[in-house]
Design a protein around this nucleic acid. Structure first.
Length: 419
DNA sequence: TCTGGGGTCCTGGTACTG
DNA sequence: TCTGCAGTACCAGGACCC
């Protein structure tokens, strides 16, 4: 779900909203991870519950009862516990969330093949082709809400509009457990009452920049010359936000897109400066990233290293390889070369990460054979590890360096997240 | 108060090439 | 051979999203 919440402005029209032409739906599960976690813990319904790990982790999700105490997603767990000490804390169960998400997406697929998942818990649907078969957009939206509630025991909110970003705003304003239609001829009245921070793509920094210009509402933004916005925010952002402020959004619903990068990072339980431990963590992250790249049938050409220091400043360094790779050893070698090139003298490090970019399908990847390539190289070893992991579980086969030293990352770290 | 993890997109700088 | 220019690729960082 969105982290930025705004109150819905009062509708300007009378009677039921006219949903003609409102063929874009944005469906967003309410407090998805919390709701999904409570399916197995029904006795906790109606009580404050926080989903999150330990150590230096943050809140993944919280029930609305916990949110009443000021707990929000992405808040440090230490602060969340202080704000709501009576809350029950539950560790995330990502397999469970993925299974529920798959079932919800299957419900979307029964309505239209033009649905675009944004994350585990939300998606856009283009229902233009389903209206004749299933009825008007509002009926389809209500059917989706009822079906998901019946089959998955979780509620969702739906925004119905003629463009993606208005549908997205509408679902956020309908929360929790609601449905909001924004008729085409009410879009501008709907938008112009909202604060600039409500727009998709306006975060804290952009909002600050707009406030400095004296722009507080979407109406203010709309009536500012686009050149002024471009100077303040850059060409792309300025032009884009000006168009949104006038309700213009040409983006179509795009079914299933391939990821453009894959990576992992890990925050240490305590800041560390030991190069041996850092190299070991890089090996673990390269191994994990490579396995995910291979399982997606991809190869990547650019390796990016991320380092966050104790003072929270963050740097990235990247290297583009001659050929795409999915080999753990090659990714690790590139990551350690990037790290060593930093020439850090015992700097205290909070987090390291490894990411692969420039992804291509492995069947289409052009890899030049080298004269020194062994007949059975690291790629074959990785394939064998993948087969063993599939049979005996992830981590069944690991590099020796990782068997000797367990992770230095904090136990509550969460490899996946978001809401 | 003390800030996770997995992503995408944009911007500005630099190097290379024709 | 040198210079200027435009286009492109790469790199690093920031902002934003869930």
């Amino acid at each position: 779900m969105s982290r930025r919440q705004f109150r819905p402005p009062p509708r300007t029209g009378d009677g039921p909203p006219d949903d003609t032409g409102c063929t874009v739906l944005h469906v967003d599960m309410d407090a998805f991870y919390a709701s999904a976690s409570l399916i197995d813990r029904p006795e906790l319904r109606g009580t404050p519950v926080i989903i999150g790990g330990g150590g230096r982790s943050v809140v993944l999700s919280a029930t609305y009862e916990a949110r009443a105490f000021g707990v929000t997603s992405a808040m440090p767990m230490t602060r969340a516990r202080r704000l709501c000490p009576q809350a029950t804390v539950i560790a995330p169960n990502h397999d469970r969330y993925a299974a529920i998400s798959d079932a919800v997406m299957a419900t979307f697929a029964s309505v239209t093949d033009r649905y675009e998942p944004l994350s585990l818990d939300e998606a856009f649907l283009d229902i233009a082709g389903a209206v004749r078969r299933l009825g008007p957009p509002t009926s389809i939206a209500q059917w989706l809400r009822d079906t998901i509630a019946d089959e998955q025991s979780i509620t969702c909110s739906v925004g119905v509009a003629s463009t993606k970003f208005v549908a997205k705003l509408a679902s956020g304003l309908a929360k929790p457990d609601g449905l909001l239609v924004v008729p085409q001829d009410e879009v501008l009245a709907f938008l112009h009452q909202l604060p600039v921070g409500a727009l998709w793509g306006v975060g804290d920094r952009t909002e600050e920049a707009l406030q400095r210009l004296g722009l507080h509402t979407v109406a203010d933004l709309a009536h500012t010359p686009v050149d002024t916005l471009r100077r303040a925010l850059g060409d792309a952002t300025g032009t884009h936000l000006h168009a949104l402020a006038w309700g213009r959004d040409e983006r179509r619903v795009l079914p299933q897109q391939r990821e453009k990068s894959v990576g992992s990072d890990e925050t240490f339980a305590q800041d560390i400066d030991d190069p041996v431990l850092i190299h070991r963590e890089l090996l673990r992250l390269a191994d994990r990233t490579a396995a995910r790249v291979r399982s997606a049938g991809l190869m990547g050409r650019t390796v990016t290293l991320k380092v966050r220091f104790a003072d929270f400043t963050t740097i990235t360094r990247s290297r583009t390889l001659r050929d795409p790779t999915d080999v753990s050893r090659e990714i690790y070698a590139a990551a350690t070369a990037l790290f060593d090139a930093l020439g850090l003298q015992r700097a205290r490090i909070r987090l390291v990460g490894v990411r692969m970019e420039g992804l291509v399908e492995s069947e289409r990847a052009a890899v030049q054979p080298r004269l020194d390539d062994p007949d059975f190289g690291w790629r074959d070893a990785d394939r064998a590890v993948d087969r063993a992991s599939a049979r005996f579980g992830a981590g069944a086969v690991r590099p020796a360096a990782l068997v000797r030293g367990e992770s230095v990352a904090h136990p509550g770290s969460m490899p996946r997240g978001g809401e």
